[in-house]
Design a protein around this nucleic acid. Structure first.
Length: 933
DNA sequence: TGATTCACG
DNA sequence: GACGTACGTGAATCAG
């Protein structure tokens, strides 16, 4: 029967898929010989999924996989720069290209390609013919270049994200319908394919213009009418280039093909061929699944003798993701059922959905649970009812939700049950939300922290990223539910059905990650790090963040006003000096004034072609001129006002009157914490004016703030790790370490030390921790480079262990791909074998990481022990600033707290590591942070 | 959104 | 031999 009405053609964009699969999926190699097969695996799984899913009435009747062939197409004849900036194909992908053709044939699916054409042209030609014949078409691709084909029975399907793209999807992407997509592309151009387009015009502007003028030709003819002078000029000047761009992006939908649509009819795979191929590739899971589905015997794939490496051999039972399998919990019985499932296993993955990202203010909207891969449920609690007036929505609760109190009463015993592990991704967030509803969550496992312990330095540890990388699955993005920018809605406004798919998937993903990571943690030998430095820190930080610190709004507000006045005066003075009005806050304009108008020396241009005006450059100029000096003053005030006195006021929680930061545990590669919203780890202290901001951080009535900080902890660690006897001895004797260094280097007796010599030694000491270079030290000390290099040479001569430590560390990193702290924390160094300037960066980072990381581990250990150590004191731990802990304590207990906390901090490395140097902790106390520090 | 600048350890 | 570099962070602002 000829292809026609009622038929459904599925066209798979094979080339695009394998490129995407290669980059999105974890690298996988064939065990017997190490052949890279990750992209092939992703491709095979996608094909099988289509075969499996397409058995319903809507199934394709015809199917083909289409590939690019050759690198020279008719587009290169039109424009020799077409796709000219494409990178070389990655080495590991090259051998997989022919394998994907083989896979297609093994599936008994037509495999199409044609010299001189791109896959997109073949797809366009076939899609148009099928449409003309009255059939339907699904293009399996997310390539925007194919979106021009959508409409009239043609739609696209993104197989990796599992989303359909119809007319609305195209409009969302391009701002115009499919018919006008090429017009927009012609204007906007494309840096990936090297389509020139119109300079300075992006998709947004292009859509605006096309919608206003109807189509590209009309627009170009009537370009004179455009109001914006820059746009008008661009379009007039580049008309030819734009028309060329249009020809480049327009697909050839009328190719000559020596086969017809009928030849693409779906055929059952031949079990022998398909299983033969899969066995050859050594894909265990899919081979078994295919064999079972085809009713064939499961072929045996020899297990490789010894499993090597930490990622080997834990190929979990793969259960496909299936949103339709997720349950919505609407009554107490159903919830009780899931709780029983969790208890039966001893674990459950938990994820909360809320109205915002700030745990202190966001409200609980729903909870999702998962107990096995693919088995997950969503418990909606406070979703709002939809109304006809969709501008504001309703404040009424949607129907079919269990009452919040009732649900929490049922969940509470489970979440606190010591025999059930609660698994989460960034559990600190969920635990804090639950805590506000009086529900404790313990014990916990956290997939984000598991990843951090194993993969610090390799990639981020967000759920989407981990899912893509380790599960090969792209989870639904939250923005598809909430939108972005101004029109963004909160999660309680998302319809329950839609919310459930997203939320349950998150719990499902978390559970799968947990199952994948558990065994790997052990193999990577970071279980101890995870168990002693990551997991126990979660409740400690949650407590600190919820405690917050009292900030006096009046003090900040007064300072803001004072800064504003001074800035206004400075601004007048600066413009007076410059002889013109300009934006003092614009580095580019400051640069023009200094280096063009005034003709001062030292102007360097950055990537953007603008003068760069960092503080050190301005400082040099300030010795001779007033203007740069005033600009520096202005900038300091601007910084203090905008980042601190203004912004901090907005962070004061109206309920508590306190500022609640959030610490990210897995943010910094070295093991340090990072503080956000607001960042309380960079409150000014170095200048007198800035330090006064700390006066606004106060203790409540009858209390004091107490600050304890490690003295020179990184240098002490360096002395220990590198085994520098002279440094160790100086620390043991309690000497001024920078003065001692200077004395050792320059032969000046301690009692004759000058501040300047000491300052230079201090800079060198810091430089060593950062992976010193002559250039860097010269810049820091403002001395000639050869002089700086002389200092370094002498330093290495006097402390030969330092050189050895640096060389060993870099060598180890090159060999293993990571460095470690004294406590076994692993920091991966993927760029250590890079070439060019990157190599320098990577080396210095590798030298610094064990030092900075060990210090971070030590204060983590202290923090974890602190709650027990101060349990009997009327004191609360509030903040951590890398080597400092800040407490709030009742007036009468200050000395007791200092004694207890100092002991914990000074002994924090024990018993795991006995340092060759003493750790010394300095303490201070006062009514505010300025006094306490 | 990326580049600049600057606050901290 | 030139190149371009101190380590680790987060936030505000400008400008396209």
């Amino acid at each position: 029967m000829a292809f026609g009405k009622g038929h459904h053609l599925s066209l798979i964009d094979g080339s695009a898929f394998i490129f995407r699969a290669f980059h999105a999926l974890p690298p996988l190699t064939r065990k017997s010989d190490g052949l890279p097969v990750g992209a092939v695996s992703g491709f095979v799984n996608m094909l099988w999924k289509l075969v499996e899913e397409n058995k319903g009435p809507d199934a394709p009747t015809h199917v083909a996989v289409v590939f690019d062939k050759g690198s020279h197409t008719f587009r290169n004849d039109l424009y020799d720069q077409y796709k000219a900036n494409r990178d070389e194909m990655p080495e590991d992908l090259r051998p997989q290209i022919p394998l994907t053709r083989e896979a297609t044939r093994a599936f008994n699916i037509a495999c199409l390609e044609q010299e001189g054409f791109e896959a997109d042209d073949i797809i366009a030609t076939l899609a148009c013919r099928a449409r003309e014949a009255g059939g339907r078409v699904t293009i399996i691709s997310s390539d925007k270049d194919l979106m021009q084909l959508v409409g009239d029975g043609v739609e696209m399907f993104d197989a990796m994200k599992n989303v359909r793209i119809g007319r609305e999807g195209v409009e969302a992407k391009f701002g115009v319908g499919p018919e006008r997509v090429v017009d927009v592309q012609a204007l906007a151009g494309d840096s990936v394919d090297n389509i020139p387009g119109a300079p300075g015009i992006g998709v947004k502007t292009a859509a605006l213009l096309i919608n206003e003028y109807g189509d590209l030709e009309t627009l170009l003819e009537r370009a004179e009418e455009i109001k914006q002078p820059k746009r008008r000029q661009t379009l007039i000047e580049n008309a030819d280039q734009i028309r060329l761009s249009k020809r480049l992006v327009t697909l050839d939908s009328d190719m000559e093909l020596d086969y017809g649509l009928d030849s693409l009819e779906v055929q059952e795979p031949v079990a022998e061929d398909l299983l033969g191929f899969l066995t050859e590739m050594e894909f265990r899971t899919i081979t078994r699944r295919v064999a079972e589905a085809l009713g064939a015997e499961v072929p045996v794939i020899e297990a490789p003798e010894a499993e090597q490496g930490e990622d080997a051999g834990d190929e979990a039972e793969e259960v496909p993701f299936d949103a339709s399998a997720y349950e919505i919990i609407r009554d107490a019985d159903a919830l009780a059922g899931w709780i029983a499932e969790a208890r039966a296993r001893g674990w459950v993955a938990v994820d909360t959905e809320t109205t915002g990202l700030n745990e202190m203010t966001a409200d609980l909207v729903g909870v999702s649970l998962s107990v096995e891969p693919g088995e997950a449920a969503y418990l909606p609690l406070t979703h709002r009812a939809a109304t006809s007036d969709d501008l504001f929505g309703s404040d009424e609760l949607a129907e079919g939700q269990l009452a919040l109190d009732e649900a929490l009463d049922l969940l509470k015993p489970l979440l606190a049950d010591p025999s059930v592990m609660k698994i989460g991704q960034n559990m600190k967030y969920d635990a804090k939300i639950f805590a506000r509803y009086g529900v404790a969550v313990t014990p916990i496992d956290d997939t984000m922290l598991m990843s951090y312990a194993m993969h610090a330095g390799l990639h981020g540890h967000g759920m989407d990223q981990l899912s893509e990388r380790y599960l090969g699955h792209h989870p639904i993005e939250i923005k598809t539910l909430l939108g972005t920018g101004k029109g963004q809605i909160t999660f309680d406004r998302v319809p329950i059905d839609e919310a459930a798919k997203y939320a349950a998937e998150d719990a499902d993903v978390t559970l799968r990650l947990w199952k994948a990571f558990k065994p790997r943690l052990h193999r990577a030998r970071v279980t101890t790090v995870y168990e002693t430095l990551e997991r126990p820190l979660v409740p400690v930080l949650a407590e600190m963040e919820m405690a917050g610190i009292k900030v006096d709004k009046g003090t900040l507000s007064r300072m803001s006003n004072a800064f504003a006045q001074k800035m206004a005066a400075l601004e007048d003075e600066i413009q007076e000096l410059a002889g013109e009005k300009f934006n003092v806050g614009s580095p580019a304009q400051v640069g023009d004034i200094l280096f063009e108008k005034m003709g001062l020396p030292g102007g360097k241009k950055g990537k953007t072609g603008k003068y760069s005006t960092p503080a050190d450059v301005l400082e040099d100029l300030a010795t001779e001129h007033d203007l740069p000096a005033r600009v520096l003053d202005w900038r300091q005030l601007q910084k203090l006002k905008s980042t601190y006195t203004d912004a901090l006021q907005d962070h004061i929680n109206p309920d508590t009157g306190r500022v609640h930061t959030s610490y990210s545990i897995a943010g910094a590669n070295t093991g340090r914490l990072a503080s956000t919203d607001p960042n309380l780890q960079n409150i000014p202290v170095r200048t007198e004016e800035g330090r006064r901001i700390r006066e606004a951080f106060v203790a409540t009535d009858g209390h004091r703030l107490v600050s304890l900080d490690y003295s020179q902890i990184e240098l002490r660690i360096l002395a220990h790790i590198a085994g520098i006897d002279a440094l160790k001895q100086a620390f043991a004797e309690g000497q001024d370490i920078h003065a001692a260094t200077a004395s050792e280097m320059f032969g000046v007796p301690l009692d004759q030390m000058t501040p300047d010599v000491r300052r230079q030694a201090k800079a060198i000491n810091f430089g060593v921790i950062y992976g010193i270079s002559g250039w860097g030290l010269a810049r820091n000390l403002r001395i000639p480079r050869d002089e700086a290099q002389g200092f370094i040479d002498r330093y290495f001569e006097r402390f030969p262990g330092i050189r050895a430590y640096m060389d060993d560390t870099v060598a180890r990193a090159k060999e293993t791909g990571y460095v470690e702290t004294l406590f076994g924390r692993r920091i991966n160094t993927p760029e250590i074998n890079a070439k060019g300037p990157t190599a320098g960066f990577a080396k210095r980072a590798a030298i610094n990481a064990p030092i900075q990381g060990t210090a971070a581990d030590i204060i983590r250990r202290a923090m974890i022990r602190m709650p027990d150590a101060i349990a009997k004191l009327p004191a609360t731990m509030l903040l951590q600033v890398h080597d400092e802990l800040l407490f709030e304590v009742e007036e009468g207990a200050v000395d007791d707290l200092i004694g207890a906390a100092r002991a914990v901090m000074e002994e924090a490395s024990l018993p795991a590591v006995k340092l060759d140097v003493p750790l010394v902790v300095d303490a201070g106390q006062g009514a505010n942070w300025a006094e306490a520090h």
